[in-house]
Every structure is written in C-alpha cells, then in structure tokens.
C-alpha cells in the first residue's frame, strides 16, 4: 500500500504533466529579480512595522525604556573616551572627543547591522516556516532598526560636537547623503551576511572578531594619520578603500573643522562612497535573492 500514487480518474498523466496542463507552479518557486523587488516594495509596510516592533521590543523589559537609545551611545563614547582620550591621551588630533564619537557612532551603525543581520534568518526561522513573505524583509528590517538607532546617536553626536566648540556650518548638510549612502551599503551587507549566517551557524562566533579587526582598520579610536605614517603605501592605499573608513571620514569632514583625513581629496571620498553603496547594495541583494528558496530549511 505504501508509496502508491492515487490514480487520477480522468487521466493517467504523471504529476508534472498534470501540473502543466492545469497551470500549477512549483511550490515556493523563486521569483525573478524584478518580481522580487516588486514584492519587497509591496511589503514595505511590513518591513517598517517589523523594524519598529523590534526597536520597541528590545527596550520593552528595560525600566528606562527607549531612553537607552540615547544612553547606549553616550555610555559607549564615555568608556572609549576614558581609555583613548584620558589614559592613553593623545594630543595630536584636534577635538579628539568629537573625532572619536563621530567614528564610533558611524562605525557602530554598520557593526550592529552586520551582527544582528547575521542572525536575522536563523533567529526568525519560526516566522519563515509559518508565513510567506519575501525573506529579504528580515535583513532589511534590521537595517531600518539600526537606522532608527543611528538617528538617536546623531542627536547625541550633534550635542557633543557643539559642546566641544565646533560651529554649525553648511557642511553639516553633507551628513545626509553620506548617511544615506552608508545605509544602502549596510542594507546590501546585511543581506549578504544574513544568507551566509543562515547556512553557517559558526559565523555568529567569528563575527565579533571580524568586526573588531574592521574597527581597528577604520581609524575609529586613533588618528587616521597613523595609517599613512606607519603602513607601507600600498597598505595605506588599501585602508583608504575601506568602506567603513570612507563613511566615517565623510561624517567627520561634514561635522568637524580641520580634522585629519586619510583620503587625499573629498572627491575621491565621495566616489568611493557611492561606489561601495552601489556594489554592496546591488551585490548583496542579488546574492540574497539567489538563496530565497532555501531559507526555510534552516
């Protein structure tokens, strides 16, 4: 009795032929790239609602609630300032506090997006196995959540920058396109690591080390001039292409007067920033889409 196919009364067709005759499609067939983008657009409200929900949920057990959105970056900045600004004091960088905080907050945006992105598929397996929606919603929601967090940090940053004596200039406006480019870059990167993390659970263990190395290579905690002084020129040239460094430098140029820069020109900074956003944004999206059918397997 086992393994028997139920005979169709009206035809002796095989399953595939029957499916073709009545226009049935493969269950969970992957849509084309264009269709997929369209579906994501249709689900934009879900992405926004989910991102918001995650943000609220992450503070829901804390007594201070969403105040932590501002307190976390502040505490972070205080700890690093204590070590790198007071204990290992360096006087070479003008306005080191603002310099440090800009780097920290901008880098933190990418860092947390990547770290939560790695687990965005694995930690939502229940949702994925229960409901049908384009899976890219999950890593994109992570990016949106982190973007909201960043807005909190930016308010803190603006206060720090002003208190430490920087003037408000028109250059501050450059911060807007810079952050938008970084957001696109983060979205692509988050999608890429989300797919990798869904296949390779070990990635979660490795990620903190990768991120720390990346942070040291992005000139967050010390003057970027050290790169050009200490490294051979080819290596310092490579560091100049580091996307995190590029976005940090753009933010510093926007907010701070006479801050040290590694990149030779502002134009070069903008070109690399746009380049990275396009490459990572499009590349990460395509890479994630190619795995669309597999995410339910876990």
């Amino acid at each position: 009795m086992a393994n028997t196919t139920v005979a169709d009364p009206d035809s002796g067709l095989t399953g595939a032929q029957l499916a073709q005759r009545y226009g049935l499609r493969f269950a969970g067939e992957r849509p084309t790239l264009g269709e997929y983008a369209g579906q994501l657009w249709h689900y934009r409200h879900f992405i926004a609602a989910y991102a918001n929900a995650k943000l609220v949920a992450s503070f829901s057990n804390a007594r201070l609630g969403q105040l932590w959105q501002v307190l976390t970056p502040l505490t972070n900045a205080a700890v690093y300032y204590l070590i790198f600004g007071v204990v290992l004091a360096q006087n070479r960088t003008p306005n080191f506090i603002a310099y440090l905080c800009t780097g920290l907050f901008i880098f933190n945006f990418t860092q947390t997006a990547v770290q939560t992105g790695t687990q965005s598929i694995t930690s939502n397996l229940g949702l994925i196995r229960a409901l049908h929606f384009p899976r890219a919603c999950l890593p994109l929601a992570v990016t949106v959540t982190q973007f909201q967090q960043l807005l909190g940090s930016m308010v803190v940053l603006a206060v720090i920058v002003l208190v430490t004596g920087e003037p408000i200039t028109l250059a501050w406006l450059m911060l807007v396109p810079a952050i938008l480019l970084q957001t696109v870059f983060n979205a692509g990167l988050t999608m890429a690591v989300a797919r990798m993390g869904s296949k390779l659970a070990d990635l979660k263990q490795v990620m903190p080390f990768v991120m720390r190395t990346w942070m040291y290579g992005s000139g967050v905690l010390y003057s970027v001039e050290l790169f050009s002084e200490q490294l051979p020129s080819w290596a310092s040239g490579l560091v100049e292409l580091n996307p995190a460094l590029v976005y940090i430098e753009l933010a510093r140029v926007s907010l701070l007067e006479n801050t040290p820069l590694l990149s030779s020109s502002l134009l070069q900074l903008w070109v690399t920033a746009v380049g990275w956003a396009i490459v990572m944004g499009v590349g990460g999206f395509i890479y994630f889409w190619r795995g669309e059918q597999e995410y339910g397997r876990g």
Partner: peptide, 19 residues
C-alpha cells in the same frame, strides 16, 4: 506551502498556499 523546499521530487500548487 513552499516554506521548506523538497530535496527530490516536486510539489506543484495553484496560487500561493497558506499555512
């Protein structure tokens, strides 16, 4: 429902089944 891909064989459906 297409949430868990089959390793061999095939599942064909009309429209999008909901679990």
């Amino acid at each position: 429902a297409g949430l868990l891909p089959v390793n061999r064989g095939a599942v064909y459906t009309q429209g999008q089944p909901s679990l």
